[in-house]
C-alpha cells in the first residue's frame, strides 16, 4: 500500500463519484418534489448513452452528443411524468411498479434498436491524454468528469438557491400543498424537475459512455448506485447528493481495491447503517 495507491484510488473514487452525481442529483430532486421512487432512472442513463452514441456516429461531435442525449431523454422523462406518473400521485407502490414497467420496456427497446454489443463513445482528442505527477497518472477524461460534475453542481446550487424557479422547486420539496396554496404551479414544477432529472442522468450516460461504455444492462447496474447516493445523502437534498456521490464513489473504489469479494457489501452495508440510524439520510428532512 504505497502513497501512489491511495492517491490513485482516491482520484478514481472522486471521478466515479462525479459521474454518480450527474446520475443521482436528478433522482434526488425528482424524489424531493414528487416522492416518486423512480426505478427507471438508470434507464435514462443507459438511453442517454445510446442516443449520444448514435449522434457521435452521425455527426462526430461529442458536445452535440451530450446535449442531444440530454434533450431526447428529457422529453422521454417529461412524457412519462405527464402521461403516466401524474395519475398515480401519492400511490407509492403503483408508481414503483409503473417505473419498473418502463425500465423493462426501455431495456428491451434499447436492445431492439442498438443490439446487444457493448460500445464506447469516442471522446475528443483533447480529453484523451494522461497527466502524470510523479508516479501517479491522472487520465484527462476522469479530470473532465470531475470538472463537469463540479460545474453542474455549482449551476444547480445557484439555480436552486438564487433564482425564482429554484425557490419554487425548494418550496415544492418542502411542502407540496403549501406551495400549491401560495400560487406555485406545482404540476409544472414537477414536470420541469422530472425532465431536468432525466436530462442530467442522460448527460451522465453520454459522459459515462466514454468511460464505462454503453451496453445493455448498464441501466440496472447504475440504478443501485444512484439509490445509494440518494439514500445516504438524503432524499431531495442537493448537498446530500454531492456528499453522497463523493462518499459512494470513494467507498466503491476502495471497497473494490481492498476487499474485492465484499465490494458491494462495503458499499451497501454503510448505507443500511446510515438509514437505520438516520432514516432520512445525512442531509434529508422528513
Amino acid at each position: 500500500m504505497t502513497a501512489e495507491f491511495w492517491v490513485t484510488q482516491a482520484f478514481n473514487g472522486l471521478s466515479y463519484g462525479a459521474l454518480l452525481f450527474l446520475l443521482a442529483s436528478g433522482l434526488s430532486l425528482i424524489f424531493g418534489v414528487m416522492r416518486i421512487v423512480n426505478l427507471a432512472h438508470g434507464s435514462y442513463f443507459m438511453l442517454g448513452g445510446y442516443v449520444g452514441l448514435s449522434v457521435v456516429w452521425r455527426t462526430g461531435s461529442y458536445t452535440a452528443a451530450i446535449f442531444a442525449g440530454a434533450l431526447a431523454i428529457a422529453l422521454v422523462g417529461a412524457g412519462m411524468e405527464r402521461l403516466f406518473l401524474r395519475r398515480l400521485s401519492g400511490q407509492t407502490l403503483g408508481q414503483v411498479l409503473m417505473t419498473v414497467g418502463f425500465a423493462l420496456i426501455f431495456q428491451d427497446l434499447a436492445l431492439l434498436i442498438w443490439g446487444g454489443d457493448p460500445y464506447s463513445i469516442q471522446a475528443p482528442a483533447a480529453l484523451q491524454g494522461v497527466l502524470t505527477a510523479g508516479a501517479v497518472r491522472f487520465p484527462v477524461y476522469r479530470i473532465f468528469m470531475i470538472v463537469v460534475a463540479v460545474g453542474v453542481g455549482a449551476a444547480l446550487w445557484l439555480a436552486l438557491d438564487r433564482t425564482r424557479a429554484g425557490a419554487m422547486i425548494r418550496a415544492a420539496v418542502d411542502d407540496r400543498e403549501m406551495a400549491q396554496g401560495v400560487g406555485i404551479n406545482v404540476p409544472v414544477v414537477s414536470l420541469a424537475v422530472f425532465a431536468l432529472g432525466a436530462a442530467l442522468a442522460a448527460a451522465g450516460g453520454v459522459i459515462g459512455g466514454g468511460f464505462i461504455g454503453v451496453y445493455p444492462g448498464s441501466d440496472f447496474e447504475m440504478l443501485p448506485y444512484a439509490f445509494v447516493v440518494v439514500i445516504v445523502g438524503g432524499l431531495g437534498s442537493l448537498p446530500g447528493a454531492m456528499v453522497g456521490s463523493l462518499l459512494v464513489g470513494l467507498l466503491d473504489n476502495f471497497g473494490k481495491a481492498l476487499f474485492p469479494e465484499l465490494s458491494y457489501f462495503t458499499l451497501f452495508a454503510p448505507m443500511a447503517l446510515i438509514l437505520a440510524l438516520k432514516p432520512t439520510g445525512l442531509f434529508g428532512r422528513v
Binding site: 407502490l93 439509490f227 432524499l235 465484499l262 458491494y264 452495508a269 448505507m271 437505520a276 432514516p279
Partner: peptide
Amino acid sequence: RATGVYFLMITLALGMVVWGLAFRW
C-alpha cells in the same frame, strides 16, 4: 422503524446488500 417511502427504500437497500454478496462473494 421506517414508514412509507422510506420503508421501500430501506428494504430496497437491504435487498441490495444481499445481492451484492451473492454477486461478489
